[in-house]
Nucleic acid binder design. Structure first.
Length: 424
RNA sequence: GCGUCGGUGGUAGAGCGGUCAAAUACAAGGGACUGUAAAUCCCUCGCCUUCGGGCUACGAAGGUUCGAAUCCUUCCCGGCGCA
């Protein structure tokens, strides 16, 4: 993997670049489509590509449970398995430490709506007996499968091994995504853990990369090779890049400490993870990116509302991923330049205009709001597909436009113009 | 015509003397969703309200009762059976 910065945004951390992977280039900043279980929900790869997507992100925990990382390996890696020909990434399962852990069964999301920390404290009350599917252990996390209840212990080494089997171009260190409701003391402990896990992830990755190299010297050039032991199947032997993950919650010291520590390790790039109140996000990203080495790519994990994309890019983020376009799409919320709309609302039932008249996505070129509203009311499968198609196109292309605006020296004008209309 | 069963909120359908403005589901209206436990979840859903409550309601009209969607009488409407 190679990263080249083409242009920098004046008086800020922002930049435009090209990230070269074994499966193609990613023009950054870029929005990564989330395809947790080796599928971008409700879309086929052609639709994902037509939306302008350059790279897809799968999930270690989910693919390990189903269908199993060895199946994906034998299929030739996640890209081949799901018929996505471009670059791929996998998340490490660190997010599931959060979503299946403290957040399980609760109304806690990755982002917090309130800024007042005193309001957070009740959440920390004795919840040790609260049901959760992820529990942090000595040197890893035990997960109780949400599919069949079976117990699985994931260590940093295990996560990396799984990700090597999944074979994405870019993989992530195993981390602990903490809850935004955790107090400082807990954030410190968790950060210490994430740092130890980062070292172990890196070590395991280097070991496996070395083995891979040795293997490809025997077999010839890198790429899918026949497996001597599973004869007709293929193994992905492309070199993989490992990104370390910066955590630290909303605390400045912890964030900076984490950025320093993680950047001291030999990662190929970085993820910025964890939780913040929305208002704190830009400062947290800035603290971190001022410290991370400029020449390596940075991925802001799980972030993706339009206003966040501008913020992230301005503060030096190169990659974003977010479930929002597809989840909102499936649930009937659709992005427009004037803000999000809920397509099931009464007023769209007889609205025979496209979602956006000047949108070039497949949905807008071919269908009306009334039709999409009808599909949602009728619980038709196509509803989620058409809405996700538009949403993914909207977000992916917003990032593309932001990239272009930097190249054209018009970033700040574009940002102001867009957000003024979008946020009303 | 006789017999019989039934008529409950937008719909289906519980309730069968008080705790019933009436279960539940659907429909309807609104909302949420940021490294996917999610084609999911939450709220509202007779009328009025100073959110304490007030008013009108279970085909219609009478009646019994402290009290009726629930019991009785008649009428209207529908299903089924027999003529």
């Amino acid at each position: 993997m190679q990263f080249k910065i083409e242009k920098k945004l004046k008086n800020s951390l922002g930049r435009v670049g090209v990230l070269t992977t074994p499966h193609g280039d990613i023009l950054t900043p870029a929005f990564v489509a989330v395809g947790t279980k080796a599928t971008v929900k409700s879309l086929n790869p052609e639709q994902v590509k037509e939306a302008g997507t350059q790279v897809v992100l799968g999930n270690t925990y989910h693919l390990y449970l189903q269908p199993g990382d060895e199946i994906v390996r034998d299929a030739g890696g996640i890209g081949k398995f799901m018929n996505w020909q471009g670059p791929t990434m996998t998340d490490s399962g660190g997010f599931q430490v959060f979503s299946l852990g403290v957040a399980y069964g609760k109304d806690i999301s990755k982002l917090l709506k309130i800024t007042d920390p005193s309001l957070l404290i009740p959440e920390r009350f004795d919840d040790s007996d609260a049901p959760r599917l992820a529990k942090i252990g000595q040197d890893g996390v035990s997960f109780k499968s949400h599919l069949d209840g079976s117990i699985h212990y994931i260590t940093p080494e295990k996560s990396i091994q799984i990700q090597h089997n999944l074979g994405a171009d870019i993989i992530f260190a195993f981390d602990e995504c903490t809850s935004p409701t955790e107090d400082l003391k807990y954030q410190e402990e968790a950060l210490e853990r994430t740092h130890r896990w980062a070292e172990r992830s890196l070590k395991e990755h280097q070991k496996l990369e070395n083995q891979k190299q040795a293997r490809s010297q025997v077999l010839g050039s890198p790429g899918p090779q026949p497996r001597p032991d599973h004869s007709p199947e293929l193994v992905s032997d492309f070199p993989q890049a490992l990104f370390g993950i910066v955590q630290g919650g909303r605390d400045e010291n912890l964030r900076k400490q984490s950025a320093k520590f993680i950047s001291s390790l030999d990662f190929d790039g970085f993820g910025i993870g964890g939780s913040f109140a929305k208002e704190d996000m830009s400062t947290a990203v800035k603290w971190v990116n001022e410290i991370l080495p400029e020449e390596k790519p940075r991925h802001l994990l799980g972030i993706g509302e339009p206003e966040d994309l501008f913020m992230g890019i301005e503060n030096g983020v190169d990659l974003f991923d977010c479930v929002a376009p597809t989840r909102l799409g499936r649930n009937g919320t659709i992005y427009t330049k004037k803000g999000k709309i809920i397509i099931m609302n009464t007023r769209y039932r007889n609205d025979f205009l496209p979602i956006e008249k000047d949108c070039e996505c497949y949905t807008c070129k071919n269908y009306t709001r009334a039709y999409i509203a009808h599909l949602f009311h009728g619980k038709e499968m196509l509803a989620g597909t058409l809405a996700s198609t538009h949403n993914l196109y909207f977000i992916v292309n917003l990032v593309k436009k932001i990239r272009q605006s930097i190249l054209d020296n018009k970033f700040f004008e574009f940002k102001e113009e867009f957000l003024k209309e979008y946020l009303n």
